[in-house]
Amino acid sequence: MAVLVHKQSNIIVQGFTGKEGTFHAGQMIEYGTNVVGGVTPGKGGMEHLGKPVFNTVADAVAKANADTSIIFVPPPFAADAIMEAADAGIKVIICITEGIPVQDMVKVRAYIDTKDCRLVGPNCPGVITPGEAKVGIMPGFVFKKGKVGIISKSGTLTYEAADQVVKAGLGITTAIGIGGDPIIGTTTKDAVELLMNDPETEGIIMIGEIGGTMEADAAHWIKAHGTKPVVGFIAGQTAPAGRTMGHAGAIVGGSEDTAEAKMRIMDECGIHVVHSPADIGDTMAKVLSA
């Protein structure tokens, strides 16, 4: 089963003919992902990487049955691209773009809440279901098929966790990079819920970082509804207050934003919290064999 992206997903790339879009779409196609085309306004009718280019997302939906979109559009135009996808009826919208103004995302969130779709990101590495579809910028070879779901705000830390899980002999159902911005589409809790309901996923790895309350919200949900073991890690235990650590959302404002507070809540909610990021894979293996 896995979640969000599958072998049969009909995927389009928004910002298809740009530098980033071209490079990563090429990698996705090489991985075996079912890319059915791309969108670049004004270049409709062309062919790029052997796939059709459309002027609008609506065209791509009508002519190529697109149901999933990945966005590589530059920050000033990315909010517009997300809303265009939502309006055209795309069900899963994955936005890679980093640096979208927060007020744009406030509007986008309100808009997509009125549509029947799911947004992942922005400022995220994307989503991968190993062996089926890579809809993101992650190195595909690190992710091997298996039974653990991964949720993370960070790119390279997701790869790190995936690598440990694979080396522990477990493999991955779907890895979801939710992104490091203050306002994002799919929250930690949303992603946990998806993986809890996926019959193939036997355990979940939840990687958070300082800032916001998403991990605590997810932990409370897990305590009330969880049916599978969850291993959790929060990056930024040594981060000073009031400083943004790379990701726009990674900043300690109040006492609830700290890694310590989040890990305490996660622990109280029955999550297997690891203090070292080196212990993620081994802990999952131990928990699943118990």
Partner: peptide, 16 residues
Amino acid sequence: VNGAGLAMATMDIIKL
């Protein structure tokens, strides 16, 4: 480090 999340995690490793 490459990546913000991994950079924070690396700082945590140093502390531990």
